[in-house]
Amino acid sequence: MSTPTHDLATAGVSIWLDDLSRHRIDSGNLQELIDTRDVTGVTTNPTIFQAAIGNPDDDSYAPALAALGASGADADAAIFALTTEDVQAACDIFRPVFDRSGGVDGRVSIEVSPDLAHDTEGTIAEAKRLWAKVDRRNALIKIPATKAGLPAITAVIGAGISVNVTLIFSLERYGEVIDAYLAGIRRARAGRIDLTTIHSVASFFVSRVDTEVDKRLTAIGTDTALALRGAAGIANARLAYELFAQRFADPEVRKLVAAGANVQRPLWASTGVKDPALPDTVYVTELVARWTVNTMPEKTLEATFDHARVSGDTITSGYAAAHAVFEHLTSVGVDFTDATQMLEDEGIAKFIDSWHDLQRTVATALEGARA
């Protein structure tokens, strides 16, 4: 009997879980989600690791923290050890998926420190350190799509490392991300690196766009403005897919693909619904197209499995309507460029806050272990 998650996968969408913890790994839950929910990958971020390691009801990290404390490790060294161990274990669980999909799926992402979001050279060094430590072909190193992150993406891809580009909000920045990826692929080719081994996804955030734009539409308050609430996030993502299709159909890019390069797949992130007025699977069912990834928090994954209605491609027939949404947003006075820059700045700040919370949590645990 078919399920909505199976239908979604059949429609060409890779389902990734936006969560990871040692308990999820050790309990067998991650394998269960692969077997029963068609999950083919995992994404992580500093907030996810803070929630996992800092969870007072989860003692699965206690033995490792005790050993690290006894060894004299500081908080940063302990975080590096704990998170890379989790990602290694998850990569091993997903290795059969990776093999079956020819390297397309079975991917597990780990992010460079958000403190490096505006440090190009620091990001490059950290990405290489994470890649070497995890030492799994099916890992992805997450790099934010900041201005400083763009040249880092090129350098890291050029070194043959697979990358998940995160925190993309605007079409303009997405175009720059594609440019950075392709520049990295050309650099890798010049260095005689096997292009087939390099994979990348571009994580385009969805629900956060609606949260910010809807706040602005509510402040404008006209009937025309209020009628646009809940429309920007999906329209923005659909136009991102249109750009993806256009750029990777370019003859010069097709030559790279013919030489073994992989397309950089669009990934829909921030797909948990924050507005109770919207259907709880709207950022799944309205963003279906081949060669996409949807990374879901578990609540959204379970809602999708339970009652989502998947009816094939819901993106490519919506380009005209998506362009119309943005024409209307401009006409009512929404400055979308300002909104997306604010979202990028807030996204980085939130991850930095989570990272610093994690540092404090781990430092306290290490002190307790040494007491």
Rank of each mutant, 00 (worst) to 15 (best):
H356N: 15
R37K: 10
A139Q: 14
V310Q: 01
S270A: 11
G149F: 09
I193M: 04
T295N: 01
P4V: 06
D92T: 00
L278F: 09
V134M: 13
G175T: 13
I161G: 05
I25D: 00
R247W: 10
T361C: 11
A339W: 15
A75L: 03
Q264F: 13
V209L: 07
I79G: 04
K142C: 10
A64V: 08
V97L: 12
P114T: 03
T281S: 00
Q88G: 00
A245H: 10
V206L: 08
S71P: 05
D35I: 00
G54E: 12
L239S: 08
L243N: 13
F98K: 10
I15C: 11
V257I: 13
K147H: 06
P251Y: 08
V97S: 12
I110W: 12
D92F: 03
N294C: 05
K142E: 14
Y283V: 05
S170Y: 10
S203N: 09
A371Y: 05
A51T: 08
I198D: 09
G28C: 04
P63F: 01
Q264A: 08
G312A: 07
T40V: 15
R187Y: 04
Q31W: 02
T218H: 11
A117S: 13
D135F: 08
I34W: 07
L287Q: 08
T36K: 06
R100Y: 13
R173T: 06
A132S: 05
L358Q: 15
A245W: 12
N294H: 06
D345Y: 11
T314E: 04
T166M: 02
K142M: 11
P96A: 14
S113W: 14
K128N: 08
W291V: 02
L171R: 15
T40M: 15
G160I: 07
S162W: 04
F49K: 09
T337E: 15
F248E: 07
D59G: 00
G312D: 07
L301N: 02
M1C: 02
A77K: 09
S21N: 10
A320T: 12
G312Q: 04
R216N: 12
A321T: 09
A261E: 03
D194Q: 14
D115E: 15
R229C: 02
A237G: 12
I193P: 03
Q359H: 15
P297Y: 09
I178K: 11
E242D: 14
R229V: 02
Q264G: 10
H328N: 10
I93N: 00
V112I: 12
L343A: 02
I220Q: 03
F98S: 14
I220G: 00
S71I: 05
T218D: 13
Y174H: 13
N262A: 03
D59W: 02
V334Q: 11
Y241H: 03
P266C: 09
A183H: 12
M1K: 04
V201R: 06
T364V: 11
